[in-house]
Design a protein around this nucleic acid. Structure first.
Length: 925
RNA sequence: GCCCGGGUGGUGGAAUGGUAGACACGCAGGACUUAAAAUCCUGUGACUUCACGGUUGUGCGGGUUCGAGUCCCGCCCCGGGUACCA
């Protein structure tokens, strides 16, 4: 048999299909193992070679685990709601459902060519009603729940109402809004339905509140941060402002502590956990109230450094702070309005990244809670409305931003600790030393001062100690079409009603236009009949859910994908538990991964799942970047700027004359360039070409550097493609795609095949008994591959295979038993080739997919001698081969007597003689 | 700005604190061939030497160590995230 990869791979896939090899059952006596990839968003551009990197990686691991005796769940699906489909719909008028379906079909075709061991019967698609029915169901549970701190888990709203009816809310310990009013049972029962609804909103895990969105008046729509570039809309460059709208939120902050603590139980990268920890941002500090001068209200401030309170020389509040309008004195109204306008045009990132110090005095003063001195109140862009209370107490001597602000506005800089240094030039945030200029805490240290201050604040009702989280509640409303509709409607009094669970799903209606309505409402608002489906005067919620809704629980659905009654059955969930091995990009570190953990914990609280965490082990694959090719200057007459050349046309970063002619025909940039305008180089065979410059950029159509996996598979075969993707480097580092190297892997697979068949396709004689040398090669390879798979170092596995095959190819004879082990060893990496060799060449009955993975036998690897590298003063000078069991003293004698060693030691007595057994010898003179 | 990664030949990369550059690509030379393809062999960090060899070398500057790509301190550059891209 010749190595015809097309034929071989097609045949292998047919065998797998015919025998349903990848069908996964939920009942097995084998231990379960769940290997999952982050499912893709099916974009119109199809897959490029960057996408399958993680999929191949996890596929190899899944196959390896299966060969190790596990019942492996390794599914795939599609995260199918999202902005790009909607933008495409706006441009073309095509229904996003249609384009999404087409894209999914393309993705599946592309994926199937690579030979993944997916059980497609378990495919999930988030935009299908059968799926989002359960997304809506989860939302209803969140809506009908509150976080009961007394039991430290979610509790039902009906329980809360019972408590309110009987005792009011004085004894309720809930994760809820800070400013909840206190009421008795009688008061509660006297409230109107609307009042009760508003109060319950402050407890629900899915709740509504006013918040700011990016409003673009010119486009008449709310924009995603992604759609804003330099403060203006990406489309059209129109100004964007902050607009207050009523929005749905999820109270993820209720779970902050559990999300933080849960990280300690997870087998994730420390860096990934750090990102989540920082995102959650737990800080222990205090709330302090600063009463306003000549005004009934007060400004609340959260600080982690209450000890610096006597260093406060001004207060800064966010320009959007509720109190700004009320406290600004008439002479500053104009300037404050002007400043607010400037801030509204900037994104939060821009505001925080801003190096220039800006701000505006409001004319108002607060009174220092302890000293009663007047403290001026400013607004400034570095304080964000959504963080903490949207107000900070500024201590210039201890905080650099405050310091710069104080310098600019000539405000006092008061040293507060005797250990503070250099504060003529910059702030010093130290906690060392004793307090000065600080009234009753003078002379105390940090710990004593903090405790005393919090005690005084609480005594005098000026504040209290508080744990604060940087994490905010998660915005859950999108004014978009292509997302899950909310199972919510409003009656004519504005009272919220939920759609009954047995009426789910609430189907996304068809609309005439996907274009923005201009009012800020989503396009759903134009589906009049749908909006009023619950009777005259009622209104369906027309916002839709965000992208992370469907992706926050999809991993559960694979366990029981067709269940119409519930998101996952108890049996299926209890068998599969949670994901053992999750592969995806680190760009999801704080988005998807945090939201999923939150939902999972909630589902555990309401008894839907039995595990506290969704993903036990997490591996991040690095991004594959593009490698663009550009013409060099002076290569083409009258063309000064480098031109991108399609990477698929070039070979070894060269463009031949022949390919140039294709380009001239197909690409209008080259229409007017004549062959003679090009400065051709000539190789030794007389072929003319130009050498191209390399530039690393994103893989993108516009750089002509996109490489399609289909092309790779058709040119080299899926097995070569799979192994080359792994060979590129460690899974977790970012790297550019370079097709040039793939021939090395292609050569390797052919060389491997030639262990079985000669150049004419005749089977080789493999009847000889294995030699010692052969067994050593085999077991060395088995040992290293097992180690490297466990360490997830698949690139070195491929190298190890290459070394093994190179060495075996040099042997005079190779035995069938050696080849059998080798085929099993390589099967996870090159499954098609392995399958055909396994069944047709080695005549096994069942698939190699279910063969047992080889383990090595140490007896073939024992060596009697070791070649010691000899260092003199840490520099490698020579090698000496010595028996492995030789004593140090004897080694020393032999080494010192060595000619080369003597040359370097010049017969001086060694100061030190270091022997690391089986590693190295170092002579220090 | 803040948080998290990364930086080793012409290229992708390898290296439990122990011979830096495994394995490949590319390049150069050679074998086979009418020729090409395929295959095989040899060389390939830089500088220096006829050669043996020597010097130097893992982004930059310091440090710890018998020994540092690896550990510590301070910089520079690049990538990801930054709450409505997914």
């Amino acid at each position: 048999m010749l190595y015809d990869y097309n034929k071989i791979e097609e045949e292998a896939r047919k065998k797998w299909n015919d025998n349903n090899v990848y069908k996964v059952s939920t009942s097995s006596i084998k231990p379960k193992y769940y290997v999952l990839d982050m499912f893709p968003y099916p974009s119109g551009a199809g897959l490029h070679v960057g996408h399958p990197l993680g999929y191949i990686f996890s596929d190899i691991y899944a196959r390896y685990k299966r060969m190790k005796g596990f019942n492996v769940l390794h599914p795939m699906g599609f995260d199918a709601f999202g902005l790009p489909a909607e933008q495409y719909a706006i441009q073309t008028g095509q229904h996003p459902e249609k384009t999404t379906e087409d894209n999914i079909e393309t993705y599946i075709k592309q994926l199937n060519k690579i030979g993944f061991c997916y059980d497609w019967n378990r495919k999930v698609t988030t935009c299908k009603p059968e799926y989002y029915k359960h997304t809506q169901w989860i939302f209803l549970q969140l809506f009908n729940s509150w976080y009961n701190k007394a039991i430290d888990k979610a509790d039902s709203i009906s329980n809360l109402i019972t408590v309110f009816n009987e005792q009011g809310n004085t004894s309720v310990k809930a994760a809820c809004d800070d400013k909840v009013q206190i009421f008795s049972a009688d008061e509660w029962n006297g409230f109107s339905a609307k009042q009760q609804q508003d109060i319950l909103m402050e407890y629900r895990l899915a709740f509504q509140k006013e918040s700011f969105v990016n409003w673009c008046p010119a486009l008449g729509t709310v924009l995603a941060n992604d759609e804003i570039v330099n403060g203006v809309s990406e489309r059209g460059g129109h100004p964007v402002e902050k607009k207050k709208m009523s929005q749905w939120f999820l109270r993820i902050t209720a779970y902050a502590e559990r999300l933080l603590n849960g990280l300690d139980t997870l087998d994730w990268n420390e860096s990934m956990k750090d990102m989540q920890r920082n995102w959650i941002g737990k800080s222990i500090g205090a709330m302090v109230s600063f009463p306003l001068k000549n005004h009934a209200d007060k400004i609340d401030v959260f600080t982690t450094r209450v000890d610096t309170i006597f260093g406060v020389s001004f207060l800064v509040i966010a320009p959007e702070h509720d109190l700004v309008n009320q406290i600004t004195t008439p002479e500053f109204v104009g300037a404050v309005e002007e400043y607010k306008k400037i801030c509204a045009s900037k994104s939060d990132i821009e505001r925080q990244a801003e190096k220039q110090v800006t701000g505006q005095f409001t004319g108002a003063y607060v009174l220092h809670p302890f000293t009663q001195t007047e403290v001026p109140v400013y607004i400034a862009d570095y304080v964000l409305a959504g963080y903490g209370t949207g107000a900070v107490m500024a201590v210039p001597s201890g905080d650099q931003r405050d310091y710069l602000f104080a310098k600019k506005f000539e405000l006092p800089i008061i040293p507060i600790l005797d250990a503070q240094q250099n504060i003529e030039n910059e702030a010093d945030a130290t906690k060392e030393g004793k307090y000065i200029n600080s009234d009753f805490i003078n002379g105390l240290n940090y710990k004593e001062a903090t405790a005393l201050l919090i005690q005084k604040l609480e005594e005098q009702k000026l504040g209290y100690g508080k744990v604060n989280f940087r994490m905010r509640d998660a915005g859950y409303s999108r004014q978009r079409y292509w997302g899950e509709p909310f199972p919510i409607y409003y009656d004519k009094d504005g009272i919220i009603h939920t759609v009954a669970e047995d009426k789910l799903p609430v189907i996304l209606p068809n609309v005439d236009s996907y274009k923005p309505t201009g009012t800020g409402e989503s396009p759903l608002a134009t589906a009049t009949e749908w909006v009023t489906q619950h009777g005259e005067g009622t209104r369906m919620e027309t916002d839709t859910m965000p992208g992370y809704a469907g992706s926050s629980w999809y991993f559960l659905r694979y366990m029981d994908p067709e269940n119409p009654n519930e998101l996952v059955s108890k049996e299926a969930q209890e068998y599969w538990q949670n994901v053992d091995f999750y592969v995806g990009g680190s760009e999801h570190a704080v988005g998807h991964l945090l939201y999923s953990r939150f939902w999972h914990k909630f589902l555990k609280d309401i008894g839907k799942v039995s595990t506290e965490e969704p993903f036990k082990k997490m591996v991040n694959q690095g991004m594959i970047g593009g490698r663009s090719l550009l013409t060099q200057t002076n290569q083409i007459k009258n063309v000064e700027i480098p031109l991108h050349i399609p990477v698929m046309l070039a070979q070894n970063d060269k463009l031949t004359k022949e390919k140039f002619l294709i380009l001239k025909k197909d690409d209008n940039r080259f229409e007017n360039i004549e062959i003679d305008d090009v400065n051709w180089e000539t190789d030794k065979d007389g072929n003319e070409f130009i050498s191209l410059d390399i530039q690393l950029e994103k893989m993108s159509k516009r750089y002509l550097n996109v490489v399609n996996p289909d092309d790779m598979v058709s040119q080299y075969g899926a097995d070569t493609f799979r192994m080359y993707e792994m060979f590129l480097g460690p899974i977790d580092t970012a790297k550019p795609w370079d097709t040039n190297g793939i021939s090395g892997v292609a050569n390797f697979i052919r060389k491997f095949w030639r262990l079985f068949y000669d150049d004419l396709g005749n089977a080789k004689n493999i009847d000889a008994a294995p030699t010692q040398e052969e067994l050593k090669i085999l077991h060395k390879t088995i040992k290293k591959v097992n180690q490297d798979i466990e360490n997830l170092s698949f690139n070195t596995c491929v190298s190890t295979f290459m070394i093994g095959v190179n060495e075996l190819a040099k042997q005079k004879t190779i035995s069938k038993s050696t080849l059998t082990e080798f085929v099993k060893l390589i099967a996870p990496f090159a499954p098609h080739t392995a399958e055909i060799l396994w069944t047709e060449t080695l005549k096994n009955d069942s698939s190699v997919v279910d063969a047992d993975f080889p383990t090595h036998d140490e007896q073939y690897l024992v060596e009697s001698t070791f070649t010691y590298p000899i260092q003199i003063n840490g520099k490698h000078r020579t090698n000496i081969e010595l028996p492995v069991d030789m004593e140090n003293e004897e080694i020393q004698n032999i080494v010192l007597a060595d000619e080369t060693v003597q040359k370097f030691t010049e017969n001086k007595e060694p100061k030190k003689f270091i022997v690391v057994k089986g590693r190295i010898v170092n002579v220090v003179v």
